[in-house]
Computed example of a mutant assay.
Amino acid sequence: MRLTKTSAALALALGALLAPALTGCIGNPVEQIVEGAVEQAGGGDVDLNSDGGLPDGFPTEVPLYDGEIQGGVAVDTAEGGGWTVVVAVSDPQASFTSINDQLVAAGFESQFSGFTDGSGTGMYVGPTYSVLVTVADDGSGAVTATYIVTQSASQ
């Protein structure tokens, strides 16, 4: 089955929101919720990772902050797929600055980037992939960086 753009976006968004809940849980019902939502939206292949590893096919061209991977999701689409990865970070502002520097050094062009009120958001476009990154407190006092990676529009 193939995913539509709508179901791929839904799966990536759900993965971004729910990936921290997957950490360390085998057979977690959250995985069933995301997969069920994808099926309702048109079906497709989803890889939800709750073991701290990268989701299937995560592009090596996208550098990640050197922190513990909390979880992630890969969505297989006819348009090339997408990935969400959540990484634990320490200091929000220093982490966001480091992530920005890593992406720019890897050849990604910053479309916008900013840090205010304890959280940062940036959008970066490379020749093959686009990356949306947010760094923020997840509400429980833990600070995470969430990467949403998709095929660049030029692909």
Rank of each mutant, 00 (worst) to 15 (best):
G126H: 03
L22A: 10
G80R: 00
G15R: 03
A106S: 15
Q111L: 06
G57A: 12
F108Y: 13
T144G: 07
V38K: 00
M1E: 15
D91T: 14
G57H: 07
G15A: 07
E39N: 13
S98C: 02
G71M: 06
L18P: 00
V104K: 02
L54Y: 02
A88N: 15
E39K: 12
S110D: 11
F112G: 13
E31V: 14
A136K: 09
A19E: 11
A37P: 03
S130H: 05
L48C: 03
A94H: 07
T134D: 13
C25P: 01
D47G: 09
P63E: 08
G118W: 05
A88R: 15
V85M: 10
T150M: 06
V30C: 01
S119W: 11
D76T: 11
A145G: 06
V143T: 14
M1V: 14
N28D: 13
P55L: 10
G118Y: 10
Q93N: 13
V133A: 05
V62I: 06
M1I: 14
Y65K: 11
N28Q: 04
P59C: 05
S7H: 05
D137R: 01
S154L: 09
A74H: 10
G107K: 00
V125K: 10
S98R: 06
A8N: 06
G71E: 08
T146M: 10
G27V: 02
G122N: 04
S110I: 07
K5N: 14
G122C: 06
A136W: 04
T116G: 14
G57N: 12
A153Q: 13
A136M: 11
G120C: 08
D45K: 15
L17I: 09
L14Y: 07
N100P: 05
P127A: 15
V62T: 01
L22H: 01
P29C: 02
G107E: 03
A13N: 13
D76G: 12
T150N: 12
D47E: 10
L132M: 14
A37T: 05
A21M: 11
F112T: 11
K5Q: 14
P92D: 11
V75E: 08
L10F: 09
E79N: 12
S113T: 13
V131D: 03
G43T: 07
A106F: 09
G72C: 00
G43L: 07
I99H: 04
G126I: 08
I148P: 04
V135N: 07
F96A: 07
I69H: 01
Q93M: 07
E109Y: 02
T23G: 07
I148Q: 12
T116P: 11
T60E: 15
I33S: 05
L54W: 04
A9W: 01
G139V: 12
E79F: 08
T144K: 03
G81H: 01
Q151C: 12
G15D: 01
A78I: 08
P55A: 10
L22N: 02
P20F: 00
D137E: 08
S7N: 11
D91I: 08
T150G: 13
N28Y: 01
R2L: 15
D66N: 11
Q40P: 06
